[in-house]
């Protein structure tokens, strides 16, 4: 590209941006907003106003619909990979093969390094959880629309920005941790896991809080059209990417660490012979005093 071409491209880009900005300012007052920012933010937390019908069976939070959509996308992706990509795997991997192998290897390695026992299941679980959290969080960037029961369009949020999704993930991770303990140590494993009874709550609400705050900030920014230029690149894309990575890493890391801790074989402590020891000490004292 020559200098002149580059200049032309910059001018066209600036003109287009200016036109869009002007258009948004001119049309700003006429856009229909069916809820105030307060209502919108309250609804993002409470899910009272905007419900989506689940095939006419039940009105559910948009997060659940988002969860089904994300799962559908992931399963389709996995199916395509299984049918067309994995059979063509080579000993020396290409770029896409490398990507898949890195993802699998990352979670498998994390499971192996944190738990010496039963890490095969743990690897599969944290792979799914990590992929789900990451993809689900990225998913909110696409702004896929759904129609609420009130007839208003709503962009689907991250599945785990829904409190029910976050509770499910936190509690399931806790059950997985507990299962590791039970599988290795039997009933003692339950006791070990019960020591960390606050874990499901902390895991659930950490995830819910992190994803919800991201969603709220993004919603807030998009609510005002004047803030919709430039700023979403940082608060929308970069923040979402960051917390997608961070949350996926945090939950999988915590799960694998606690799982490894619980799945550790407990060593039998030798019984202390207190009475015998006491007599030995007393005899030694007597001998010393004599």
């Amino acid at each position: 590209m020559t200098k002149a071409d580059r200049k032309k491209a910059i001018i066209v880009f600036a003109v287009l941006a200016g036109v869009f900005l002007l258009g948004s300012i001119l049309t700003g007052g006429h856009g229909e907003k069916h809820e105030t920012v307060q209502e919108m933010m309250q609804d993002a937390v409470m899910h009272e106003l905007n419900k989506v019908s689940l095939f006419g069976i039940k009105d559910v939070n948009p997060g659940l619909i988002a969860a089904f959509v994300v799962s559908g996308i992931l399963i389709l992706f996995a199916l395509i990979c299984r049918l067309f990509v994995i059979p063509r795997f080579k000993l020396v991997p290409g770029k896409f093969q490398m990507l898949l192998e890195t993802a699998v290897g990352l979670f498998d390695g994390m499971a192996k390094s944190n738990s010496h026992h039963l890490n095969k299941f743990l690897g599969a679980y944290i792979f799914t959880a990590g992929t789900y959290i990451f993809t689900g969080t990225i998913f909110e960037l696409f702004g896929i629309q759904a129609i609420t029961t009130n007839g208003h369009p709503i962009s689907l949020p991250a599945p785990l920005a829904d409190i029910n999704g976050a509770i499910m993930m936190g509690c399931l991770s806790y059950l997985v941790i507990m299962s590791g303990g039970v599988a290795v140590n039997g009933i003692k494993g339950v006791g070990k896991a019960l020591k960390d009874f606050s874990l499901p709550i902390s895991m659930s609400f950490r995830m819910f809080g992190a994803l919800l705050s991201g969603a709220l900030v993004t919603e807030l920014v998009y609510y005002y059209s004047a803030l919709s230029y430039g700023l979403p690149i940082i608060v929308g894309v970069l923040f979402t990417l960051l917390h997608a990575l961070i949350q996926a890493y945090v939950l999988t890391m915590l799960t694998s660490m606690f799982y490894g801790e619980n799945a550790e074989k407990s060593e039998k402590k030798p019984k202390k012979k207190k009475a015998k020891d006491k007599t030995v000490i007393a005899e030694a004292d007597q001998a010393a005093s004599a």
Binding site: A67, S71, I75, A78, L79, T131, N164
Partner: peptide, 17 residues
């Protein structure tokens, strides 16, 4: 959500992982 995640776990395990 749990049902959805279980299906996803099974599918990802069999098809990808």
């Amino acid at each position: 959500h749990l049902f959805n995640f279980t299906i996803l776990f099974g599918a990802l395990y069999v098809l990808l992982y």
